[in-house]
Design a protein around this nucleic acid. Sequence first.
DNA 1: GTAGGGTTAG
Length: 828
Amino acid sequence: MAWPFFVSIFMQSRVLHNRHAFIGMPFGLVFFSSFSSCHHSTRGSLVNGFCPITRRLMFLLQDFCHNVIRVKSIHAQIVLRGLVQQQFLANRLVRIYCNLGIVQYACHLFEGIPLPEAPCDSMISGYVRNERFTEALNLFKLMRSSDLEIDSYAGNLALKACMALSDRETGMDIIKFLASRGINNKFLGSSMITFLAKFGDINEAKKIFDDMIERDVVCWNAMISGYVQAGKFVEAFHLFVKMQACGISPSPVTLASLTQMSEGVKNLKLGRCVQGYALGFQLGDDVLVLTSLINMYSKLGDIESACRIFNSMTIRTLVSWNAMISGYIQNGFIHKAFGLFRELVKDSCQHFDSGTIVSLLQACSLGVDLQGGKVIHACVYRMGYELNTILTTALIDLYLKCNELQLALRIFQRMQDRNVITWTTLMVGLAQNGQAEEALKLFSQMQEEGIAANSVTLVSLIHSCTHLGSTKKGMIVHGQILRRNFSFCSVNVTALTDMYAKCGKIEYAGRVLRFSSVQKDVILWNSLIVGYGMNGFGDRALAAYHKMIEDGLKPDESTFISLLTACNHSGLVKEATELFHSMESDHSIMPNQKHYACFVDLLSRAGRLGEAEDLINTMPFEPESSVFEALLNGCLVHKNFDLGVSAADRLLKLDIANPGIYVMLSNIYARAKKWDQVNYVRGLMRQRGLKKTPGYSLVEIGGAVHTFFAGDNSHHRWPEICILLDNLRSEVEASGYVADTSCVLRNVDEPMKVKLLWGHSERLAIAFALLSTPAGSTIRVTKNLRVCIDCHNVTQYISQIIEREIIVRDANRFHHFVNGKCSCNNYW
DNA sequence: GTAGGGTTAG
């Protein structure tokens, strides 16, 4: 609705611009020439020299700079009066649009003005403010190549853009360029310190800091903050002390850095000390300090202190309100957050900005509150904020979290101005809604539009590849990570390790780790342990655990989940029992519900149902449904009817809406051939509106992922698949395979059971892979549920007959079939 | 309207 309006303004501005050139607008030209010849610092005094209309427009812009609709109408007046060429007005408009987060308006306005007079500085600042760093750098390059006047202002902003883009090279180039122009003031010094600190060159930064002849409080702050960002809290604190010894008193910014430090070390006591310092330095009522304290307290979970500070504040900025609102949200007080918002708007009659709305939208996302989100969405439109990229991205995120895919896509398609984060949000959301393939397609589309992926984008893409079981696509993303220099980032390396391990290429996972210089943290080790476990290498998982301890790292709760699962898959009951007991005695980690569920799963799969039951009865807290689920599953495998039924009974009291329980219970009855009970349980499921998750298998051929459901004849090569499966069936039967129909838990005759087995999705996927890949190549299939015992048997035979390696990843482990055998040894 | 800094989307 607002976009065509702007286009019309834009068109007019171009027309006027041309007219301007020929006819000349008296006021515009007079003031324009007086501006271009005068020095920056004298501009302010000229404001009063403007004609009354210009002056009035300028004041109006100032007064209504937060109201998009009013700004647009003032903009229209400026255009109609032919004043758009006036540098002062254009400058202010560009700045206001950028502040409102509507960069494209500013951009069009900017492009309509010939370069020498264009408000380059404001535009560069607007780009940086809106995180459009590439555009900022491009403009800076343009300024350089057009030989425009460049001072430390634009230079510093360009340097900031380089920091955000992790582009060290360009940054160093800019520093050299500024030096060659003789620009070397304290502004640049501080920026350089920040720049080098951001790139981990904290020692280089310290050198510059030490070499500076005159150091003001800003320089000290830059250095202290550099240390805080680098996690060097001791050095930061020493510098803080030294600064005072040099006779420089801390500024509000210094104290803000110190509160961040308390946040970094997660030390509430230190935070309280900083608050004490603030009082000592007469900064106890500074907005900046108090706001950062609110932030620190709410991040550390002390919402009462945050609240107390907020209530005591005599002056509050919008940022303070936003910090408090977001603090409430982070601590789960959603209603209080909305209450505060109401207070802000109604009682205090203050304006709110996109930041406020973003926090509220986040609250809706967390609580999956679609209704609340829609109200805010309407509000966004009423305020004219629909073109703000951050806000719209938050809306897309909300709709995706509420599973409203269509709404999210519609907003995305209508968006004029999409950045990396917008694209990434959509990719993550699609993957979470089970559309990983769409997410990957979106990546190519994003690249076509010339938007560069960042580290978060790449991590989300790797997750999608993992989900699809596609190493081919994963390797393309891996290439991007190497090319874009993200291989030092432990999150990326962890995602890669996880992807290779979960796609059955455990040797690649090991190689990624060997060749990366990344500092291994617990999460990275955990992902490797999970990988080994899933691939059936319980011994290697244990070895990795011991190596990790040797390296001096402390295992965490997930380490033990990964280890217990690994032992479970490899049948290492003794080792698991030892680990489970060592948790508390050696590492002071109390086993939680998940640990108990894992251990019960392991015991009951190993047939030690009595021990599992005893363990549950001696648990120090009430067991959750996951614990009984593990026991129930064990009962199903080991055909313990009575214990199974009683476990299901307790389970249904805890979790009545979990379809998995009904399926397991009906399977237990089916095993005992109690078909009446089976029908009763199935009827109960239907009655309660619960649906069983359908099983499916995926196979990737030439970059395309093919999905098969059981008995699914919709694939375009279905006739060939049928023929191939028939042939395979006679061959495996000739080799001695006998169908094990125990897993077909339906009341049908034997031949029908066998027929159903041959329709299982993994067999269809394997047959299709055989049709579409060259002889001798490895076949990889991914299944969402567990592979059944008969499919497991038959795949062993198939691997022998066709002389191929077949890798099947199911819901929780890997099966490598080679020469008629499976790596997992034991199918439970 | 320049550096250091408090809130906000992945």
